[in-house]
């Protein structure tokens, strides 16, 4: 599904990705790990087509995410590490995602409800005025409602309390079949029940890439 070939990305003299090669296939749940500055975020942003590589390429289902971004992004759900301070209210944000990505609003409400997020009373509230946990829950609900084949989470549970984390992992387990699930995380123990592959990055390179067996809940 995702093929990364010889990918190098530099920012001025700093090499953020150094000739990275890897492939993510259907039914793989990957924990992408590494110290700060290892290149994890640069790698997922390259998959999303945000960066023009210095050399090499990324192909998602054989398509270049920079040249045909709308085609590629139809199939990707993404939740960033920190929810951005979007000034749209929840109703407008839901309109944005439902029109642009043809997501069913009712499905967003369903997953929000599953995450114990009360959307009804907050519809006219600006997204950035919600609490950190509420924002993260909404972004997770949107990512699940999008029903994408590729789901990318950059530290998705950073703002969630233990109960919300349990809800999140439960929903994810129900939705992970036939998908590529890519977690950027520092805490393997949290996602060890979900992932079947662990990649460790350092200084822009993949230093280890191991298949691991899933532990059941």
């Amino acid at each position: 599904m995702i093929k990364i070939s010889n990918l190098t990305k530099k920012f001025a003299s700093h090499v953020s990705l150094d000739g990275v090669n890897c492939e993510f296939k259907k039914n793989e749940s990957i924990a992408l790990m590494g110290a700060n500055g290892a290149g994890k975020t640069t790698l997922i942003r390259s998959i999303l087509g945000y960066y023009h590589p210095d050399s090499g390429e990324v192909l998602v289902d054989g398509i270049n995410p920079i040249k045909q971004r709308t085609k590629v992004l139809k199939n990707i759900s993404f939740v960033p590490q920190l929810p951005p301070p979007i000034k749209l209210n929840i109703d407008e944000l839901m309109q944005y995602v439902s029109v642009s990505a043809t997501i069913d609003k009712e499905l967003i409400k369903h997953y929000a409800n599953e995450m114990k997020l009360d959307l009804k009373s907050n519809m006219n509230k600006s997204f950035f005025k919600l609490s950190g946990g509420m924002k993260q829950k909404l972004l997770i609900a949107i990512s699940l409602a999008k029903k994408s084949d590729i789901i990318i989470y950059d530290e998705p549970t950073a703002n969630l309390d233990p109960k919300a984390r349990d809800d999140f992992y439960r929903l994810l387990e129900q939705n992970e079949e036939e998908k590529v699930l890519l977690f950027v995380t520092h805490r393997l123990e949290e996602v060890k029940d979900l992932v079947n592959r662990q990649i460790y990055m350092d200084l822009g390179k993949i230093v280890s890439d191991d298949k691991i067996s899933k532990e059941s809940f």
Partner: peptide, 12 residues
């Protein structure tokens, strides 16, 4: 402030 990062993750 990373708004672009999220908003452009949709097929626009």
């Amino acid at each position: 402030n990373h708004i672009l990062e999220y908003m452009l993750s949709f097929p626009i």
